[in-house]
């Protein structure tokens, strides 16, 4: 006899809270091979990865700058996934928000900031909603799979951005494929002098708070979670599943749109094609790591922001390709997914 047995039951709390720690360790062991292939020492690399960005105020604030769009795309994905709507289109909806911000940033020239900045946020949110609308309608009206349509629309909006930047919006001053610089009154104010941390970070934190409030304290949140657990059962319980999913899908798109506004009005001041290096897809990693819960999403976004910043540090200091960051993030996601099943088992004395 072994003296113990494994049975299906909720794992004890200490076990569950240990999962992220184990996941991070396993991820670093797995990706160490790549660091060695790049001719660097893994331990040194991970010191640059995780410790160096936090060792100075400037780089620690840069982590929060990186986290700003990630908090929003993470919240966007979590909002949709919680209702069982698989919005993979946060990337495209972010671009929709960025297009709106670049446009408003031009036409709001001369409008004071107190009016212009709220209009930028509302406009970006609306653009995200608009880009999320066709797949959401196709889903609830015609049962067309939203995964495919949102993915395809991510490709389409990149063509729209390219058409704008190579056509009507090509910067008349520089001739680069970037939109004209937005008006000074539409630029997000900096929160801390000599850092790039901007108003968008506050917007992102408020969004995370709203995510928590809506999901756990409102009737809409209850309906969303019911639809996410099972549509048939939710319908049986009297939930209007179609309306609930439609709402979740559109709000999710709006939140992603806010991420695009922040990048234009807080960081770049132009629309450029590379405004997002895949923040929308990273949002899926963040929402999953965060367990679709507001606090989890917030922590995961800041951790992924740390990895993004760290990847650049490692690249500069040790010459390890910056894409190590992408590999680490994806590996962390897959390892965590694999470890999640441990939650369902506990070890008992026989």
């Amino acid at each position: 006899m072994l003296g113990f047995k494994i049975e299906r039951a909720a794992a004890p709390i200490w076990m569950r809270s240990l999962i992220p720690v184990i996941a991070i360790l396993v991820t670093f062991i797995l990706t160490a091979t790549l660091v060695i292939m790049a001719g660097a020492n893994p331990l040194e690399a991970y010191r640059y990865f995780l410790i160096a960005p936090l060792s100075s105020q400037v780089s620690a604030l840069e982590v929060l700058v990186k986290s700003t769009p990630l908090l929003l795309t993470g919240a966007s994905v979590a909002f949709a996934f919680a209702a069982g709507y698989w919005n993979i289109g946060s990337e495209g909806q972010l671009y929709a928000g960025a297009i709106a911000a670049a446009w408003l940033g031009i036409i709001l020239e001369g409008v004071p900031s107190v009016v212009a900045i709220p209009l930028m946020l509302v406009g970006g949110f609306a653009a995200g909603v608009l880009w999320a609308l066709p797949p959401a309608l196709l889903k609830v009206k015609l049962a067309v799979d939203e995964v495919v349509t949102t993915l395809l629309l991510n490709s389409v909006i990149l063509f729209i951005v390219s058409a704008l930047l190579n056509g009507p919006w090509r910067d008349p001053v520089s001739g680069w494929p970037q939109s004209p610089e937005i008006a000074a009154s539409t630029v997000f104010p900096r929160l801390i002098p000599r850092s790039r941390l901007h108003l968008g970070f506050i917007v992102a934190l408020l969004t995370i708070a709203a995510l928590w409030f809506i999901l756990s304290r409102t009737a809409l949140g209850l309906k969303m979670r019911a639809a996410g657990l099972g549509q048939e059962a939710a319908r049986f319980a009297g939930v209007n599943v179609e309306n609930t999913i439609l709402t979740a899908a559109l709000v999710s798109g709006g939140i992603a749109g806010l991420a695009g506004v922040g990048e234009v009005a807080g960081i770049h001041f132009h629309l450029i094609e590379a405004i997002s290096p895949g923040y929308g897809y990273t949002g899926i990693i963040i929402a999953t790591l965060g367990g679709l819960h507001a606090v989890g999403v917030g922590l995961a976004a800041i951790f992924i922001g740390l990895i993004d910043t760290g990847a650049q540090t490692v690249s500069r200091a040790l010459g390890v390709p910056v894409y190590l960051g992408d590999v680490v993030q994806a590996t962390l996601l897959l390892v965590t997914l694999g470890l999640f099943i441990l939650q369902n088992y506990r070890i008992k004395r026989a």
Partner: peptide, 13 residues
């Protein structure tokens, strides 16, 4: 999606 992100990152690396 995680596998797609992993393999794109791995290829670029």
């Amino acid at each position: 999606l995680g596998i797609t992100l992993l393999l794109v990152g791995l290829s670029l690396f």
